[in-house]
Amino acid sequence: MKNKQNNLKIFRSVAVDQLRADLRSSKSFKSYYEEQFQVKQKDLLVTNIAIQEKLPTLKIPKGDPASADLENAIALHEYFKIDEMQASDPRFWVYLSHVLFRKYTLARWGIKENHDDLKDDPTKLRAAINQVLEHWFGTGGDLKGLRRHSLARLWWAAHLTYAPWEKDPEFFGGMKKDDPYYFTKTLLYTQDIYQTLLERGMGRSSKILISILDYLDKNKKFTDNRENIRRLAKELNLVYGVKKIIALDRQSLQGLIKKIAEEIMEQ
């Protein structure tokens, strides 16, 4: 039977501002321990984003918190067929973390300290509130913030690495794989790869991001040492200062990455 389609509702801007203000003032802080959330219809806006009635179930990891990131990233990306502009709208993600995937957000990014231990200590309380702002709101309203949002981080990880050969056949044509999420696996191989590559501006270029992931994928010995990845990103960033590596052809870019990585391995 065909799954029924609905149009997704999201929070209005004013509702997001109010949620954020209530959290900042600590008025609503306690509610970020609770699974229940009362949504007021007046706070919602119907979008033109069509969704299937049945939401994907996100896996809640028991051991390593990042162990289910890949599976969840693919599930979210397959379900939400949205464009970049929609996916950079904080109203969308705040609704998802507060309402649709609240249980997941609580389990993966909930506050570990007891509420009673925090409420009378302004410094600890401020730190806990900032943590909620990061993972439930995506502080900043840009990708630097959304990178830390419980769900946006997963969707974007999948989106930025999904079948690059379809998005830019001229550049990535020779890298075609059977699995469209092939490079998502490398990006989410460790949390460190994700953080290191996406925290720098050059990671916004799919040419650079995928070329680095391609190298990491083919050189596991290099990739298994997280210090190597950090140094590679740092060195490439330095080179970017004098050389527009974003304008290089694929072969030249891959050659440059290989050269820098080999120099790191030799040291």
Binding site: E84, S88, L143, R204
Partner: peptide, 13 residues
């Protein structure tokens, strides 16, 4: 010409 938009993770030359 290098264009960049941090909000949408866009960077292209």
């Amino acid at each position: 010409v290098e264009a960049e938009c941090a909000s949408t993770f866009y960077r292209n030359a």
